[in-house]
Simulated scan of single mutants.
Amino acid sequence: MERTATAGPPDSPTPSGSPQPAAQVPQALDGMPQQRAGDAAPVDAGGEPARSARPAAGLRGLRPWRLLPSPTGTPFTFGYTALLAVTSLVARYADPAVVDALHQSSSTDVAHLVRAPLLVLPASALWIAGGVVSAYSLCFLLVLTALERRTGGLRTAGVFLFGHVLATLATEVPVGLAVLAGRLPGSSAHRLDYGISFGVAASLGALAGLLTPWLRWPLLLVFVALLVQDLTGFVDPMTSCGHLIAVGLGVATWPVIRRGRRARAAE
């Protein structure tokens, strides 16, 4: 049978005629939360409850500056961004002949991949095709910063290089084989190819695996739809195929980066 609180008897007069204090009434029913003495709601001068001067908890949690890299929070993205800023300045202000020579020597075309793959594969990721005003430069900042804050710098660098290298090979090796088979002219082996877009696409695919489903799938669908639109428009079919491959490679890293996020949260 449930217990209930009952009030004590009414005040009874003392021999001197003054009322005697009533018995102490229990503060609340069993199971009811009790308000602490320091939690009383503030009131204004008119006796009405005053509005709290503190901002809402959701607003206090907003930190927009975490969208951008920092030397302590995201050292890999911050350092890589600084390096890309330098190469972008070189591409913008250096002599055009020098810039063209640098781009040619960093190109991951078939001819360079055959001669010096270990040199051109990382060197090609030092340049932003289209400069710092391109869409991929903004994606680079936001996507890699978000990925590194969740899974750490080493895994972020690994995902970026994984997508950059494998997507490059997946698009250039068929070109080389087609040139050997006589299906493409020899000039196809010297196609200028450099930039960070494959690595960014792989990083976005990886980041999607760390987001909530209601954000993950719309992000992937919109991004893939844009890539398919470029592919069907035949603007640059080989690069468009490389972007789709890179996104798939990023999705393939979900088990690894999810373990990385759990390990980082446990630190």
Rank of each mutant, 00 (worst) to 15 (best):
A82K: 02
L83K: 02
S70A: 15
P75W: 00
R92E: 15
G73L: 12
Q104W: 13
A85C: 13
V99S: 10
F76Q: 01
H103G: 10
F76G: 01
A94H: 09
A101M: 09
V86A: 14
D100L: 12
S70L: 12
S105I: 10
T87C: 13
A82G: 05
G79H: 03
Y80S: 08
P96H: 04
T87G: 11
F78E: 01
S70P: 05
A91N: 07
L89I: 11
T72A: 06
P69K: 09
A82N: 04
V99E: 06
T72F: 03
Q104I: 05
H103Y: 08
L68S: 05
G79Y: 00
S105R: 14
T87V: 11
V86Y: 09
H103P: 00
P96R: 00
T87F: 15
G79E: 02
S70W: 15
P71K: 06
Q104F: 03
A85I: 12
A85W: 14
G79R: 01
H103K: 10
S107E: 04
A97V: 05
D100P: 01
F78V: 06
T77R: 02
S107F: 08
L89A: 11
D100I: 02
A101C: 02
G79T: 06
S105L: 14
T72N: 01
V99L: 09
Y93A: 14
S70V: 08
F78W: 15
T77E: 05
P96Y: 05
L68N: 01
S88D: 13
V86H: 07
V99C: 05
S107Y: 03
S107K: 03
Y93W: 15
A94I: 11
A94M: 07
L84Q: 02
S107T: 13
A82H: 05
Q104P: 00
T74V: 08
D95E: 09
A91H: 01
T81K: 00
F76Y: 08
R92S: 14
A85Y: 11
S106N: 10
V98P: 04
T74G: 10
V98N: 05
R92W: 15
Q104R: 09
D100R: 14
D100V: 07
T81S: 11
T74P: 10
L68G: 01
Y80Q: 05
L83M: 14
D100N: 10
V98R: 10
S88G: 15
P71A: 12
L84C: 08
S88H: 10
A85G: 15
F76R: 04
S106D: 10
T77M: 04
P75H: 00
A85N: 06
A94G: 10
P96T: 00
Y80K: 12
L84K: 02
A85V: 11
S88W: 14
P71R: 03
F76C: 01
V86Q: 00
S88I: 13
P71C: 10
S105M: 07
T81C: 09
V90I: 15
P69E: 05
T87N: 13
A91S: 13
T72V: 06
L68F: 15
